[in-house]
Each structure stands twice: as structure tokens, then as C-alpha cells.
């Protein structure tokens, strides 16, 4: 059975993480991977092009070379290896898993916060302190979105958990209660 993309991402990311850790280059590697993620999300077809069987190696080589040159030697060898094993279209899963490992080591929590109105700096500060306490993290990175549909309150989505304190959810719950469902 073919390996699924999560397994592939986990294996490559694990290897890179351990290597970077032994070279004490974790932070740098992480920053570089963020760069890679940006390149790959901006050029959606890049991963597919680099693994495309219909293109010859000579055609793909200039692309990978120009991609590589801006990175450190460790990252260059990593990219070359991923390219050689034709896993370039799974590179975002590797970045994701690397990020998860990095976050775990540094106790970083990434939270998606949805509110009806935009949060100001003080509110965001207070919220992140609360989230940090709740999840036992030392640092919280908040991505906030504004969705007037939820009427009021906050929805926090962090590490596979959802804390839903929105007015919309409370209203639906009251509705279900009143209709006895």
C-alpha cells in the first residue's frame, strides 16, 4: 500500500528535525522552512512540476537549483534529497510536521481566534495569556479572523480543540433546548 502523505511528511520532518537539532540550527532551519512554505503556497503547481514524470531531469534541474541557492547548506541538501526521491509535492506536509515538532519543543501554541469584531492589542494580549495558561504553553501565536456571523463572543481553535463561546452557538443550543431536540 502506498504511504499516505501524512506518514511521508512525518518521516522526512523527523529526520530533518533531528539533524538540525544536533547541528543546533533549529531556529534557522525553521525560518528557512517558513520561507519554503511561502514559496510553495504562492506557486501552487511547483511541487507537482518538480515531481512530474513527463518533464526530463534537465528541465527540472534549473528550477530546483534556483530554488536551492538562497538557502543554507543543510537546507540545500535536504531539498536536493527530497527532489531526488520525488517527494517535492509532499513538502508542505514535511513543513507542517516540522512546525508541529518545533512548537512542541518550544511550547508554542497556535490558535485561530474568531470574533465578531476585530480585537485590539490589549484584548489580544489578554486572550493569548489565557490560552497559554489553559494549554500550558509558554508562547501563543494568534491568527485572528473576523466573522460578524457569530454575533459576539470568541471561538478559539487550538491544537485539535475548539472552545466555542460565541453567541451564535449559545443561541442554537437554546433553540435545541426549547424545541426539545
Amino acid at each position: 500500500m502506498a504511504l499516505d502523505k501524512f506518514t511521508i511528511g512525518r518521516r522526512y520532518a523527523n529526520a530533518l528535525f533531528e539533524l538540525a537539532e544536533s547541528k543546533q540550527a533549529l531556529d534557522d532551519t525553521y525560518q528557512e522552512l517558513l520561507g519554503i512554505r511561502q514559496i510553495f503556497t504562492e506557486n501552487k503547481d511547483l511541487g507537482n512540476v518538480l515531481t512530474d514524470m513527463r518533464l526530463s531531469l534537465a528541465e527540472k534541474k534549473p528550477i530546483i537549483d534556483s530554488l536551492k541557492q538562497q538557502f543554507s547548506p543543510l537546507m540545500q541538501t535536504f531539498l536536493q534529497m527530497v527532489f531526488d526521491y520525488k517527494r517535492m509535492n509532499d513538502i508542505l506536509f514535511m513543513v507542517d510536521y516540522f512546525e508541529a515538532m518545533y512548537d512542541k519543543q518550544n511550547k508554542i501554541i497556535r490558535a485561530e481566534v474568531t470574533t465578531a469584531v476585530a480585537l485590539n492589542a490589549a484584548q489580544q494580549e489578554k486572550l493569548s495569556a489565557q490560552i497559554a495558561q489553559r494549554f500550558g504553553a509558554s508562547h501563543v501565536q494568534i491568527t485572528s479572523t473576523v466573522d460578524p456571523d457569530i454575533i459576539g463572543g470568541v471561538i478559539v481553535h487550538a491544537s485539535d480543540k475548539v472552545i466555542d463561546g460565541s453567541i451564535k452557538t449559545r443561541l442554537t443550543r437554546i433553540k435545541a433546548l426549547l424545541l426539545n431536540r
Binding site: D160, K161, V162, I163, D164, G165, R170, R173, I174, L177
Partner: peptide
């Protein structure tokens, strides 16, 4: 109706 904040695992 008790208003409790529930933490859902998703």
C-alpha cells in the same frame, strides 16, 4: 439551560 463553555475535540 446552564451556560457552560465546552471544549470540543475535533
Amino acid at each position: 439551560y446552564d451556560d457552560q463553555l465546552v471544549v470540543d475535540e475535533v
